[in-house]
Amino acid sequence: MKTRAVVLRDVSTARPYSGTRPVEVEELTLGGPREGEVLVRVTAASLCHSDLSVVNGDRVRPLPMALGHEAVGVVQETGPGVRRFSPGDHVALVFVPSCGFCGDCAAGRPALCAQAAAANGSGGLLHGPSLLRDSAGRTVHHQLGVSAFAELTVVAQESLVPIPKDVPFTVASMFGCAVLTGAGAVINTAALRPGQSAVVYGLGGVGLSAVLGARAAGAYPIVAVDPVEEKRALALQLGATHAYAPADALAAIRELTSGGAELAVEAVGSPKVMAECLTAVARGGRVVSVGLPAPDRVLEVPALAFAGEGKSLLGSYMGDAVPRRDIPRFLDLWRAGLMPVEKMHTGTLPLTGINDALEELASGRAIRQVLDTSGALGNEGAEGTEVATAPTGVATASAG
């Protein structure tokens, strides 16, 4: 079958906003679902800074690659052995297709699944090599088992989580990466308790989702830190109690928390910011790092911060989430008005607008842009389903 998809062929050494057009929409041939695989019509795909990191070469991936890893869609066809899903099901796509049997999966840490990591690193799928071919018959790799900047995609059934049909696609599209990673870092990795203090450095989609997670966990105060004033203002709408530019943050945090926060979330991907987070937490405090720095960056911090002050530095991949558990419960928090993720939606573009979207993302202006991959966003609620309205007191972002 044929599908249009966003393809990266060469790593762009220039930033996208400098005038380069690093990716193209191409018509590809997509093989049908094999054993354990599912064909999905993608309806909405969000842009994440991790996509930009692949485009500019910070995250090394096999090329050419069909991009996109945060999305929702509708099941079209199932391969042999698939019993969890049926045509017509609405699904969120997850970028770690955990096998369910390795040591990490058995220990409740599917985000660290070794088989998934190997499949994702190779540009294939959990159950086999790539199913994508270009017009010359050459292999095009999958991004993280998803490749969702496309009209159609085939994924492992382990990459899918069913979602209710009344959740708008634009809302649901942000739960497979941003919310899992940011809110998961607070709720799963840090296990933040009600009344504990939290600070979030970096207010992109993941950092703002960490603010949402802190709000849902009952933290106080919740301090948001970012150089962009508009992002600080949005953080206050999402539940932060205070917001500061980086130059003003450390003194304010110490005053608000009587010496230091109990949790700091680093969502920038900067060793310098990680080090400041360790300074911003109190004795016995925790720092959770969810940002993705370039592979050659090195962290230097005072060694005495750990044994001498009891501080912890924790890594968090995909928010230590169990997607089949966490996506439904985070959607319940959205319904309750505790995770108004639609406020992070800063624009909707067609698939052909991908380079403009990358430019906005690289500039720092955008939070979560959504690609209308199949022209479905103007018809949310079609197929006989009723679209849920935003919870009381929560503003709804336009779907287009």
Rank of each mutant, 00 (worst) to 15 (best):
Gln76Val: 15
Ser122Leu: 06
Pro194Arg: 05
Thr43Asp: 06
Asp51Gly: 02
Asp89Val: 05
Ala172Met: 05
Ser98Cys: 10
His127Val: 00
Gly176Pro: 13
Cys48Leu: 11
Leu278Thr: 01
Ala185Arg: 09
Thr392Asp: 11
Val96Ile: 14
Val72Gln: 07
Glu309Asn: 02
Asp326Glu: 12
Asp89Gly: 02
Glu276Gln: 15
Ala156Trp: 06
Val186Ser: 00
Ser18Ile: 00
Gln369His: 07
Leu351Gln: 08
Leu256Ile: 05
Ala362Asp: 15
Ala390Phe: 01
Ser18Lys: 14
Leu349His: 13
Val211Ala: 04
Gly123Phe: 06
Val186Met: 07
Ser50His: 01
Val7Glu: 10
Ala224Arg: 14
Val186Pro: 03
Leu28Glu: 01
Ala214Thr: 09
Val7Arg: 13
Asp320Val: 01
Val394Pro: 06
Ser289Asp: 02
Ile253His: 03
His141Arg: 12
Gly57Arg: 14
Leu63Trp: 10
His90Asp: 03
Leu8Ile: 04
Ala243Lys: 08
Ala275Arg: 15
Gly375Asp: 12
Leu152Met: 12
Ala336Ser: 13
Gln76Ile: 10
Pro221Met: 06
Pro164Phe: 05
Ala240Tyr: 11
Ala243Ile: 01
Asp356Phe: 11
Leu263Pro: 02
Leu371Trp: 05
Ile163Ala: 01
Cys48Asp: 11
Gly128Ser: 05
Val167Pro: 12
Leu256Ala: 08
Lys311Glu: 02
Thr352Tyr: 00
Val199Leu: 13
Asp10Pro: 00
Asp166Phe: 07
Ala136Gln: 15
Leu67Ser: 07
Leu313Ile: 06
Asp296Ile: 00
Ala118Cys: 01
Arg215Asn: 03
Pro97Asp: 01
Tyr201Arg: 11
Leu131Thr: 06
Pro22Gln: 07
Val228Thr: 10
Gly205Lys: 11
Gly308Ser: 04
Lys343Trp: 13
Asp226Glu: 08
Val154Lys: 00
Leu234Ala: 00
Arg15Val: 00
Met318Phe: 15
Leu250Ala: 12
Gly124Glu: 01
Ala305Phe: 15
Val223Glu: 03
Asp134Leu: 10
Leu331Ile: 10
Gly176Leu: 12
Val179Trp: 09
Val387Phe: 00
Gly207Ile: 10
Arg83Ala: 15
Ala178Gln: 06
Val290Met: 08
Asp372Trp: 13
Ser86Leu: 14
Gly103Lys: 12
Ser86Val: 15
Arg232Asp: 03
Ala44Phe: 09
Thr385His: 14
Tyr244Arg: 04
Gly285Trp: 04
Leu160Lys: 12
Val96Tyr: 04
Trp334Gln: 02
Arg59Thr: 09
Gly308Asn: 11
Ser209Ala: 15
Asp58Val: 11
Gly315Pro: 14
Pro221Trp: 09
Thr348Gln: 10
Leu256Arg: 14
Lys2Val: 00
Ser147Cys: 08
Ala247Leu: 05
Leu125Cys: 01
